[in-house]
Write a protein that binds this DNA or RNA. Structure first.
Lengths: 201, 201
DNA sequence: CTGATATTATCACCAGGTACTAATCTTAAG
DNA sequence: CTTAAGATTAGTACCTGGTGATAATATCAG
């Protein structure tokens, strides 16, 4: 029986555990054909915790992700912002945003990025989405970087409302487009809309 | 030392474990002031698995939630569903959904509930949002229960598209309204839209 | 009081490890 | 060839957080 170099075995071990974190050491011996002690030495060297620790970590992670949810205050990184004029945000589609079977991002994440930016761009204490007219032009897939560009088209037409036009691109391809009407407070607060945002310094 | 009625203790035990699923039986004895054996009998009667089982379940759930996303697939509890006809979903606004300063729900959560329902109602393997025309009628606040009602208005007009009309209420007050156009696969897959969903049996 | 139910105690056992020591195998260098 | 170093395997004691079974005790209701 040929022996595998240690480095290579380490890589394989790490990959196996990554692929199926629920494998016991004993099960790993069957795949790697080495003794359980070596498995354990390898895990030590690689800093991979035991099965129960791994499950605990996953459980804890999922536990507080239920508490704090995936949708944060602002979805996407706002990389450029000219208040009441324009803004750009970047959002990368990851595992947790897509349907696994298709790899297509769930619509509300794409919307959330757009909505966050449309609200952030408004230069007022409180901004709330009143209406949105949106169009998903093509599905966005796992790993793609969505670049949303928003432009304020009318700063304050009637009744403290601003229009924001928004386009989301992947590369130079447009994937999403939306027209938002955002309510802006004129000093006072919560009157309309479905969204708002926090302090501005 | 006064003894607590069994029923009441069972409730308390279930609540404690629900609040903190990472508690060992030994820790529970400190809270409930009863022997560890009784804790274990109680768990048996209530069908609550041991700590390690609980962690394993959470870990597995979160693990294939990355693979197949059962948890966040649908935002809100779908309480009634007549495919290609109508559906109702309930979603309670909690801390993690609102802006802390105002207590107003962020728009994308309300949208997510609506979008999830609009997509779920379509009786096809894959359903993707193409367009949405939405209106936030009044802000939704912390603690409010959003009841979304969706109606399919045209099952398949042109090019495999269905129209879904949707209203979200808090009590008898309408807080959100939307018109969705949903693309439905006719057996094949991912062509348009920004959302999809999984199997239907 | 007596029987039923509830609670506690004890003991053996299990999975999936850690921690440590010791033996064996392999390999390369002197 | 010999020997030292490193890699691998073996074995033992011990740990946590339990299960399962049995038995003893407590509590309460009729």
């Amino acid at each position: 029986m040929e022996r595998m170099p240690k480095r290579q075995r380490h890589q394989l071990l790490a990959r196996l555990i990554d692929e199926n974190p629920f494998m016991t050491d004993r099960e790993l011996t069957r795949h790697l054909k080495i003794s359980i002690q070596t498995i354990r030495l390898d895990r030590m060297e690689l800093g991979i915790p035991e099965l129960r620790e791994r499950m605990k970590l996953m459980a804890e992670r999922s536990y507080d992700s239920v508490r704090s949810l995936p949708l944060h205050e602002v979805i996407g990184d706002i990389v450029d912002l000219q208040l009441d004029k324009s803004g750009i945000s970047i959002f990368e589609i990851r595992d947790e945003h897509v349907f696994s079977r298709t790899g297509i991002a769930r619509g509300h994440h794409v919307f959330a990025q757009a909505n966050s930016l449309a609200v952030a761009i408004i230069d007022d204490k409180i901004a709330l989405t009143v209406t949105a007219d949106i169009r998903f032009i093509r599905p966005v897939k796992l790993g793609e970087k969505c670049i949303a560009k928003a432009y304020v088209r009318s700063i304050s037409g009637e009744r403290n409302k601003s229009k924001v036009e928004l386009f989301t691109y992947v590369g130079d391809e447009m994937v999403f487009q939306g027209n938002f009407v955002i309510y802006r407070s004129a000093g006072d607060a919560e009157n309309e809309g479905g969204d708002g945002h926090a302090d501005r310094h």
